[in-house]
Structures are given as C-alpha cells and as structure tokens.
Amino acid sequence: MTASVVLKFPVFTVTEFRPLDRQIPKNHPSNSVKTYLPLKTPRFPRQVKARTTLMEAAQSGSSVNTSTNASMKLLFVEMGVGYDQHGQDITAAAMRACRDAISSNSIPAFRRGSIPGVTFGQMKLQIKLGVPHSLQQSLDIRRVKSVFPYGEIVKFEVVDGGMICSSGVLVEEMGDKNDDCYIVNAAVYVGY
C-alpha cells in the first residue's frame, strides 16, 4: 500500500511516493520531502557571443572575409569526393570529385537574370582540391578544369588532403601497378 503527497508549484507538480506498509525511522532520508527538479536559474560561466554567418552577412549586404577571393560575391559551395580504384590516376580521381560536386546542381539564376545586374558570363568559380601530398605534382590541372562546362575559374588551389588506401585487389588488366586507391576531395565555390 502506498500513499502519495502532491506538492503544487506555480509551474509544475512534484509527486512523491512513500510506502505506508513498513516502519521508517524518523531520521531516514526518505522521510524528508525532496524536490527532484532544479528551481535555480541556470548559470552560464561565460558570455556567448553571436557570430555573423556568411549567409546572414550576404542577406544583410555586409561582407565577411572568407578564404575565397574577396573580389567574388559567393553564392554557394558545392562539395564532392572522387575515387580512382584502378590505374592509380590522381587526375581521374580529381575530375570525379569535381563532377560529384557539380553534378546534382542546376544554376538557372545566372541564365534567367534572377540576380539583378548579373549576367551568365559573370559566373566565377574557385576550385579547392584536397589531394595526397605525394601525388600533387602528377595532377593535370588542365584536365581537371575541363570538367566545368561554364564559369570563369578565378582561383584553383590544391591542398594536402584526400587519401591513399588499399582497394583490396590488384587488377593488371585495368592498369593497376599496385592495389592503391586514390581519393580526392573537392570544394567548388560559385559566385559572381
């Protein structure tokens, strides 16, 4: 058999259950009414500063310094990953990363004049590739740039990144020299 004690507070109700069928010493902790919900105002040890995001700045018309070219007004960033599992061709992996970044997007705003005063010919691109350091010298940038059907490439940057891992199999018929798989990451910045 149990009995309940209900305490009413302005915002919530706390219910405490105490067994009635056994004797509890008077000094036992269960004889005191406990509030399990904190009633204190939460403390914040430090102030939280608001930061302006790139999107908020663009919407308000102010500018934010980014790693992209300051002369370009950034609209969006597309990201992709490319692999070359057989043949060990870092350029093929980079081209696939760029295609992956742009393949799921359509940009009608440039063609339809949705951005006042901006024409299709003013589209600018900045390309940033993460490529394993040991393979950067063998990257054919001209071939990678050919992936982009339109837009002026104003900056092309290659940084340490990506990965070399095992594909798990060496297939000589596919041009493999070993079982290495090359992985490249791409970020494509689109603006005007």
Rank of each mutant, 00 (worst) to 15 (best):
V6R: 11
K8T: 10
K8L: 10
K8G: 04
K8M: 08
F9N: 06
F9S: 09
V11C: 13
F12N: 14
F17D: 08
R18G: 12
L20A: 14
L20V: 15
D21N: 15
D21H: 15
R22Y: 10
R22V: 15
Q23D: 15
K26Y: 14
K26G: 13
K26R: 11
N27K: 12
H28S: 13
H28R: 03
S30G: 14
N31L: 14
S32Q: 15
K34L: 14
Y36P: 05
Y36L: 14
Y36Q: 01
Y36I: 13
P38K: 12
L39Q: 09
K40S: 14
K40H: 10
T41A: 05
T41R: 11
P42C: 02
P45F: 09
R46S: 06
Q47D: 04
Q47R: 15
Q47Y: 02
K49A: 14
A50L: 13
R51Q: 05
T53W: 04
T53Q: 06
T53E: 06
M55V: 09
M55K: 12
E56P: 00
Q59V: 02
S60T: 09
S60C: 02
G61C: 12
G61S: 11
G61P: 09
G61E: 06
S63Y: 01
S63K: 09
S63F: 09
S63E: 13
V64T: 05
V64F: 07
N65T: 12
N65F: 08
T66H: 02
T66K: 00
S67H: 14
T68H: 09
N69A: 12
N69R: 08
A70H: 08
S71C: 00
S71T: 15
S71A: 03
M72I: 07
L74Y: 05
L74V: 11
L74C: 04
L75M: 02
L75T: 10
L75P: 00
V77G: 04
M79P: 00
Y83I: 05
Y83A: 03
D84C: 15
H86N: 11
G87L: 00
G87R: 00
D89T: 07
I90L: 07
I90C: 03
A93T: 03
M95T: 01
M95N: 02
M95Y: 08
R96V: 01
C98P: 08
C98A: 10
R99W: 05
R99E: 08
D100P: 00
S103P: 03
S103V: 07
N105V: 13
N105W: 08
N105A: 11
I107P: 03
P108D: 06
F110Y: 10
R111Q: 06
R111C: 09
G113D: 07
G113A: 12
I115C: 08
I115G: 06
P116L: 08
P116T: 10
V118R: 06
V118S: 00
V118Y: 07
G121C: 02
G121N: 13
G121I: 02
Q122S: 06
Q122H: 11
M123V: 13
Q126H: 10
Q126L: 05
I127N: 01
I127P: 00
K128C: 13
K128S: 15
K128R: 15
G130E: 03
V131I: 13
V131D: 08
S134P: 02
S134Q: 08
S134Y: 00
L135I: 02
L135S: 02
S138W: 02
L139Q: 06
D140S: 01
D140W: 01
